[in-house]
């Protein structure tokens, strides 16, 4: 509930109130994003000034101070102040330390929309191809992890032994940096002969498995004793209790933990793509960009990954809203 809606006087048109409610939610976000972009542009100037001055000197311009050694030891902001005329050159370098937003945007367009227009959407130089590789591993692993996680949660809720024996390990495993094993899993599975999608998907599955398990155990236990007692008075069997009370009650927890699991699965797939020698996928783009100093390419891959995460988590959120509304549980 935003204050804008609350402060609307009674009798004002509903459309206006709704508009103001949306504006109250969107305007601050837009302002913050704009501030971040502006800061980014400002940060580009001192980050790239040294390289820009070197290039300008090669082109014959007079730089203050003239010697490269002095410039190396000087502070970046001081250099900007003494050479303000070269500040604009920092925003359009080929290999900047910090590429400007429009450069990243141009690279993103060149490797996605531009490739589509030329009819080569799935060429190896297209980010769509790499994002697709990452996406398939992520979703495949996420499905495995979610199914396994829900299965384990059902077992834990229904069996006292599993609850006592497995649950502490499931929680403890969250404190262990599982991601560090990712390269080893990839290399070992490769040496056994398992290549392609499956090794990455297994890492994604492993990462999304525990959030789903822990969330679902919480969700399946969320009905209070009053509701459980009611089903007892109906003489409901365990499976009836599960299908008619526990499972519906767990849905909000299910979707929330799926969002966490999906984000974790994406991270797993990206990290899983790094040790295979940078063949395909967004992680491979990151690694290749870092090997060859292609900073613009790194940033473009990073934004593609962010976009992918936003789309995946947003899709789950949309399903969540639709499902919970149908079930009458929407907040």
């Amino acid at each position: 509930m935003t204050d804008a809606v609350l402060s609307t006087p009674a009798g004002a048109s509903g459309v206006g109130a709704a508009l103001r409610g949306v504006a109250g939610a969107v305007v601050p976000v837009l302002v913050v994003v704009a501030a971040i972009v502006a800061l980014w542009y400002v940060a580009c100037v001192p980050m790239n000034i040294k390289e820009a001055l070197t290039q300008a000197e090669r082109a014959g311009a007079v730089i203050n101070p003239p010697s490269a050694i002095e410039r190396r030891d000087a502070s970046a902001i001081g250099l900007v102040v003494r050479n303000p005329s070269h500040a604009s050159a920092t925003l359009n370098q080929e290999r900047p330390r910090l590429p400007a937003p429009h450069q990243v945007g141009a690279e993103l367009w060149k490797t996605t929309g531009g490739m589509v227009l030329r009819g080569r959407a799935f060429s190896k130089r297209s980010l769509i191809y790499h994002a697709w590789v990452t996406l398939s591993a992520t979703v495949f692993g996420f499905v495995i992890g979610t199914v396994a996680g829900v299965g384990l949660a059902v077992g834990i809720v229904h069996s006292r032994v599993m609850n006592m024996a497995v649950m502490p390990w499931a929680i403890a495993s969250q404190t262990i940096p599982i991601l560090a094993i990712a390269p080893m899993i990839i290399v070992v599975l490769n040496s056994v002969g398992v290549t392609g999608l499956l090794p990455k998907a297994l890492i994604s599955a492993y990462l999304s498995f525990f959030p789903v398990t822990v969330g679902m155990v919480k969700g399946l236990r969320s009905p209070d004793s009053m509701q459980l007692d009611l089903l007892r008075t109906y003489s409901a069997s365990r499976s009836e209790t599960f299908w008619k009370l526990r499972l519906p009650a767990s849905m909000p927890y299910f979707f929330t933990s799926m969002k966490i699991g999906m984000a974790a699965a994406l991270v797993g797939a990206i990290v899983g793509e790094m040790p295979t020698g940078a063949v395909a996928g967004l992680g491979a783009r990151l690694l290749a960009g870092s090997y060859y100093g292609q900073t613009v390419q790194i940033w473009a891959a990073l934004f593609a990954a962010a976009l992918l995460a936003a789309v995946l988590v947003g899709a789950i959120g949309a399903v969540q809203r639709a499902t919970l509304r149908r079930m009458g549980m929407a907040q």
Partner: peptide, 17 residues
């Protein structure tokens, strides 16, 4: 109201990248 959604979004991103 501006920073919370952005922060929530950033927390879900693959920041290791």
């Amino acid at each position: 109201r501006g920073l919370l959604p952005v922060g929530n979004f950033m927390a879900a991103l693959p920041i290791v990248g």
